[in-house]
Design a protein around this nucleic acid. Structure first.
Length: 464
RNA sequence: GUCCCCAUCGUCUAGAGGCCUAGGACACCUCCCUUUCACGGAGGCGACCGGGGUUCGAAUCCCCGUGGGGACGCCA
């Protein structure tokens, strides 16, 4: 049987890191088994679903390169189908109308909690042989509930967590249609997973408790039960749960912050999944290796440091042409316009080894195009009164120099030797004058790329 | 409260009874390279939650405890 997996986000916000990993694992599983990956938008919560959120999710998926074979399907467009199934259930006596009000149920819940019991619907409207039901109120629009089995256990072999067993006595008759007639999440999921032929349901483990209800529904519909794989959650950098108000950010934020999608993908892959000691691997390699046996059942804490390390790695590997395009864009965003006279690919090649993010890389080379900000401490430490004459001498040499790295090196070396100094004694002040700070790649290489005019102009302001 | 799940270095993880005096990676520390800072290279620090079993032998299996998390919606 061909593998069919799905990613089924609800469009109530952006695609965050947890959702992205779920999508990645579902996608990779389908790819690994040459199956299909389906995208389904669960938008039955009309009040909270927005088209902007749908777009945000699609953007996140495409940035990460997660493509789907079918969909996106929208549950709101499948209403007729759900209603058919509900009336079938009603006709077969597997579902029933319930006229309890929200207030009534709230009271019941509080009472049960107070008694130390698990809050659950007590089945007051559930029809049973020989049972007398309350008088149907005319003014209350009813919800429709599923007749959950009263006894026995629901057991499944979770592909991540192993065997999970939940007693039906813990479950109540869940609402499958609201008072306004719209079907609810647990019901739509069941119908969709069934009709879309999903073979492996890979999702967050906050759904573990929904699984037995869904399995019971599937049984009632005479559907085949898919396999389930429940992924544990991703915690924030601080070990706290991610939520809208705490730490959860859109995957697109990583784009903005200067992370490469392949780095994020690689990082996410290793969060909760492993392939021996392998740390760095391509998405293609991941698809070949991925399996559900090596997923950790426990929660994982996000670690930005490690993401940075991976990102730095991918920056070092990146194609220079596309890297340059990206960096030019980022510089423009900062209001820095690049000068065509300077070979930006060469500059990036010189700087890429020292950046964790593309933004850092852009920041670090901005001084090629605009007057650098001067590091006061570096200035005071390196540009001493004694060194100024030395720099004046060097300046004169440079004025008539044929501008190559080799010649520049020789010129600096000459200033060092003729003044009886150590190399850094000359290189450091020069570095501060040219770059504004005390850290840079080899100063001769930097000067070569920056060009004679800019170098002399910058030196001038310090030795005049 | 009730039910379900989880538990190896600070973090991500390897580990399917002997290969484990527990391996790798990030971070951290030291040294090397060096024109500063990085990069890179070589080392180092650092963990099986506790208690009982089972077994010749347990990080690995079982039970209890502890701790953490999740669920308990006419949200998904």
């Amino acid at each position: 049987m061909t593998v069919r997996t799905r990613f089924a986000p609800s469009p109530t916000g952006f695609l965050h890191i947890g959702g992205a990993r779920t999508a990645l694992f579902s996608w990779a599983y389908a790819r690994k088994h040459a199956g299909q990956f389906i995208l389904r938008i669960e938008d039955t919560d009309v009040a909270r679903s927005t088209p902007e959120a749908v777009q945000a999710i699609l953007d996140g998926m495409s940035w990460l390169g997660l493509d789907w074979d079918e969909g996106p399907f929208y549950q709101m467009q499948r209403m007729d189908r759900y209603k058919d199934v509900i009336s079938k259930l009603l006709n077969e006596g597997k579902a029933y109308y319930c006229y309890s009000t929200k207030e009534e149920l709230e009271t019941l819940r509080e009472q049960q909690m107070a008694e130390g019991k698990k809050p659950r619907y007590d089945g007051r409207w559930r029809p049973e042989a020989g049972k007398e039901l309350p008088v149907v109120p005319t003014e209350i629009p009813p919800v429709i509930r599923f007749k959950n089995p009263l006894s026995g256990n629901v057991v499944w072999d979770d592909l991540v967590k192993g065997q999970i067993s939940i007693s039906n006595e813990e479950l109540d008759d869940l609402i499958i249609a609201r008072a306004d007639g719209t079907p609810t999440y647990n019901f739509c999921v069941v119908v969709d997973d069934w009709e879309m032929g999903i073979t492996q349901v890979i999702r967050g483990d906050d759904h573990v408790n929904n699984t037995p209800r869904q399995i019971n529904l599937l049984h009632a519909l005479g559907a085949k039960i898919p396999q389930y794989a429940h992924l544990s959650m991703i915690l924030g950098d601080d070990g706290q749960k991610l939520s809208k108000r705490h730490g959860a950010v859109s995957v697109m934020q990583y784009d903005e912050d200067g992370y490469l999608p392949e780095a994020v993908l690689n990082y996410l892959a290793r969060l909760g999944w492993s392939h021996g000691d392998d740390e760095i691997f391509s998405t293609e390699q991941f698809c070949q290796w991925f399996d559900l046996d090596h997923i950790t059942p426990s929660a994982a804490q996000f670690n930005t440091e490690k993401l940075n390390w991976l990102n730095a790695h991918y920056i070092k590997q990146a194609d220079l042409t596309s890297l340059a395009k990206d960096i030019i864009k980022r510089l423009a965003l900062k209001g820095v316009e690049v000068d065509e006279q300077i070979d930006i690919q060469a500059v990036i090649a010189l700087y890429r080894d020292r950046a964790n993010t593309l933004n850092q890389l852009a920041d670090s080379i901005a001084y090629f195009y605009q007057t650098p900000e001067l590091d006061q401490a570096a200035l005071e430490k390196h540009i001493t009164p004694e060194i100024v004459p030395v720099m004046q001498g060097l300046f004169q040499q440079l004025e008539s120099l044929e501008w190559t790295v080799e010649n520049l090196h020789v010129a600096i070396e000459h200033a060092v030797v003729s003044n009886g100094l150590k190399f850094p004694k000359v290189a450091m002040p020069l570095r501060v004058m040219v770059t504004g700070g005390a850290q840079s790649p080899s100063i001769d290489a930097v000067m070569a790329l920056l060009g004679k005019d800019k170098v002399l102009e910058r030196m001038q302001t310090f030795i005049a």
